[in-house]
Design a protein around this nucleic acid. Structure first.
Lengths: 206, 206
DNA sequence: ATTATCTATAGATCTATAGATAATGC
DNA sequence: ATTATCTATAGATCTATAGATAATGC
């Protein structure tokens, strides 16, 4: 069998599943569509993954991990607070730009199924807690120095996430109001990133 | 028949449909569930609304209109620019707080069906265009006076909407990181509103 | 011998309607 | 006479599996 020439069937199904699930959500996705997208017969899907739910869980857990980690790439270097915050926002924005559908997908699935909410709690919350406490330390230090105003670290993270994710989520709402000629969109998107950084630093000013 | 003692069947179905559709989305909603929620037999749903799609369209159009108008309650009074912006944000925030699921519902349905995207364009975009141009006038005037920095009015609206809607949309993501004892949530929510107003005005400073 | 693939179909679920019956308004 | 309601079911999908056949690795 062509071992490496093409992706293996199992891999093809998984990739197709990611695409379709993220696009349509669990409920609206048909296993037949995933099979078609993967270019394999429908029975193969059940042969490798047994159930639709099984396949979904694999996809969902992977994506939760990915999204949760994207919030915090803060590699503590010998940089100033402002620089650390700036580059963290930049990194997060770039990730969201590469994966614009991910946030919405995960929020929707958490809302529609209690089990998914549990998966989120188990995987993402520990990552968050950890990162939030290190951000809290930085904030406390700066507040003591008088360089920023006090702010709840969770509020802070939520505001950053909001500013970065929402432009992509709400794109369809504003689509017909803009001159987004795709060529200009790239530029617009970079401006947005800069503006978000500016706004967050402004918000922190005493 | 009890004309006014209870809601009529048609009304009961419509209200149940709103609830279930907004909660689960079109694809995941079963007409049997709507009937059950309304407390009527399943056949009644089809008797009054013929098809699931029909019923959905009525709900969707109503909600699109509602959401689109919520963005702009700017009654041009004899108030300052700052006051107008502040009260507009406040009004919008309060609306979102009363209807926290609405934004996500509409975004999802636009994403999953081209026809819904068309409905949004037909209903919401005219309302937006109208309001955006009046905001643009206000901004231009203030910019000329040197009281604010120049900003694209669509960007401006999108930022406000983002700051107001996202805390509610992303609530499940941050749920387990907070002390949200429901009694405290009301206070938190009011703080959030104030903070959003502060942030937007800050953003506009030259 | 084991693993991968295919065709065919069982069984569950869901939308929609047919046809009968009850309630309401002239 | 018309409108509203009910029960029963047709017809369309969709998930999952059974059972047969082909490919692969010792």
């Amino acid at each position: 069998m062509s071992e490496e020439k093409e992706l293996k069937t199992e891999e093809l199904i998984l990739e197709a599943a990611e695409k379709v699930f993220i696009n349509k959500g669990f409920a609206a996705t048909k296993t037949t569509e995933i099979a078609k997208e993967a270019g394999v017969t429908h029975a193969m899907l059940h042969y490798y993954f047994r159930t639709k739910e099984n396949l979904f869980n694999i996809v969902f857990q992977n994506k939760v991990q990915l999204l949760a980690n994207s919030f915090f790439s803060v590699v503590h270097q010998d940089k100033s607070f402002t620089e650390i915050i700036g580059s963290a926002i930049e990194h997060h924005f770039d990730f969201i730009k590469e994966n614009p559908e991910l946030g919405l997908f995960i929020i929707n699935e958490i809302n529609s199924n209690e089990k998914n909410s549990k998966i989120w709690s188990d995987i993402a919350v520990p990552i968050f807690s950890n990162a939030v406490s290190s951000i809290k330390q930085m904030i406390d230090t700066e507040v003591q120095k008088g360089t920023i105003r006090p702010i709840d670290p969770v509020d802070f993270v939520q505001t950053v996430v909001s500013l970065n994710i929402f432009p992509f989520i709400s794109k369809p709402l504003f689509k017909n109001l803009r001159h987004v000629s795709d060529k200009e969109y790239e530029k617009f998107s970079e401006q947005q990133k800069k503006e978000n950084i500016r706004l967050v630093l402004l918000m922190l000013k005493p």
